[in-house]
């Protein structure tokens, strides 16, 4: 017998976090766009100096964390929509998490290396 089980009682926090991270990323994109227009990336050294600035480094860090969390909720949603077998879905969830954590770690390493 296959019993249908729903009622996991989560979802609203992820849904809310997806919206909040989207707003943060949009603000970051506008700030970076403004900085590019203002000439912050006119040369390689200028660009490097800009990204190495403490404030820019902090907001870039927030951006990367937001992107990672946003992508986790979004990609997990895709697996939940289309992948039916629980074992395959768990595997894909784990792979997604590992890849995203790897990306976030790599990105943080890059911005703190500057």
């Amino acid at each position: 017998m296959s019993r249908l089980v729903v009622g996991a009682h989560y979802g609203i926090k992820d849904w809310l976090a997806q919206r909040i991270t989207a707003v943060l990323m949009a603000i970051y994109t506008l700030v970076i766009f403004a900085a590019v227009l203002a000439g912050a990336t006119s040369s390689h050294d200028a660009w490097r100096g800009f990204m190495a600035h403490g404030a820019v480094r902090s907001v870039t860090f927030l951006f990367i964390i937001s992107l990672g969390y946003h992508a986790w909720v979004g990609v997990r949603d895709i697996w939940m929509d289309y992948i039916k077998p629980t074992s395959v879905r768990i595997l894909l969830h784990v792979l997604t998490l590992l890849v995203l954590i790897g990306y976030v770690g790599w990105a943080i390493q890059i911005i703190w290396r500057l």
């Binding site: 729903v6 009682h9 989560y10 979802g11 609203i12 992820d14 849904w15 939940m80 929509d81």
Partner: peptide
Amino acid sequence: EDPYRLFR
């Protein structure tokens, strides 16, 4: 409040 029932 369920990832499937509402949040699909």
